[in-house]
Computed example of a mutant assay.
Amino acid sequence: MTTDRSIIVDSLGVGLATGAYGVSFGAISTASGLSVLQTCLISLLVFTGASQFAFVGIIASGGNPLTGALTAILLGSRNLFYGVSMAPKLDLDPAQRLATAHFVIDESTAMGVTRTSRRQARLGFYWTGISIFVLWNLSTAAGAWAGNAIGDPRTYGLDAAVGAAFLGLLWPRLSSVQGRLVALVGAAVALGLVPVTSAGLPIILGGGTAVLLGMLWRPGGRS
């Protein structure tokens, strides 16, 4: 039988492991041209790793900030579906939902959605989401100061670190053959568009292709 204590311990473990990764974002962001304040505000207000790395990657490659923001929104849109699945589990009133929405991320959803009781769903969700939020922002600040001191990212090969970090976030989530094929198709579209489009646009179009394909291609055929 799963106890409240074990859920809290597991949630804090996930929070520690995930939150510490904010150091990478902080260092890469400031080394790519953003200020320490801008970097910390992104983690505070956006708080979804894949979107943050995508935005910084576009800025670092010379892309338009608006293009980076649109890409980040596209990647972050998956949290809407997480919210739909978590709503009946958490059973919150409108005000509580508004306060909780910022913590709807991959890890908090995974730790809450599988619970059989409302109490344990809330324990898994909140302990994971809040611990990641606190640690992610603290580690982002630490990494941002370090990255600000590093200077030009190309000197240390950090211009390639954005892609590596993004892949590190993405790969563990591609646990099925279907998911990997969708990711490969999206990547192929993006790479094919690099020589003929402006910076940032290949990511938007490749990501959009992956999202559309993922929605249409479900187990058992289209629905």
Rank of each mutant, 00 (worst) to 15 (best):
L66V: 14
R180V: 01
D159N: 08
G220K: 11
I59Q: 10
L90T: 04
Y126A: 06
D152T: 02
V177R: 01
S198E: 15
L92M: 13
I8R: 12
G57H: 06
A31F: 02
R218S: 13
L205V: 15
L184C: 00
S11K: 08
S29F: 02
V46E: 01
A144W: 10
S198T: 15
P65D: 12
L44D: 00
G208I: 07
L201E: 12
A72C: 06
L123F: 14
L45W: 02
P88I: 04
D93L: 13
N79H: 14
G49L: 05
S43V: 01
S77D: 11
Y156S: 03
G168K: 02
W145V: 12
L92V: 07
R119E: 14
T116H: 14
R78W: 11
L74I: 12
M111N: 09
R218Y: 12
L213Y: 05
L34G: 04
S29P: 01
T109E: 07
D10N: 14
G163Y: 13
A165W: 02
S117G: 10
G83N: 07
S61V: 05
Y21E: 01
L34D: 03
H102F: 13
C40L: 09
G207A: 12
A31K: 00
W136F: 08
T116C: 08
L12I: 11
V84D: 06
V36S: 07
S131W: 08
V9P: 04
G124W: 05
D93P: 09
L158F: 13
F53L: 07
I58Q: 04
V162H: 10
D152M: 01
A183T: 03
V134T: 14
T48H: 08
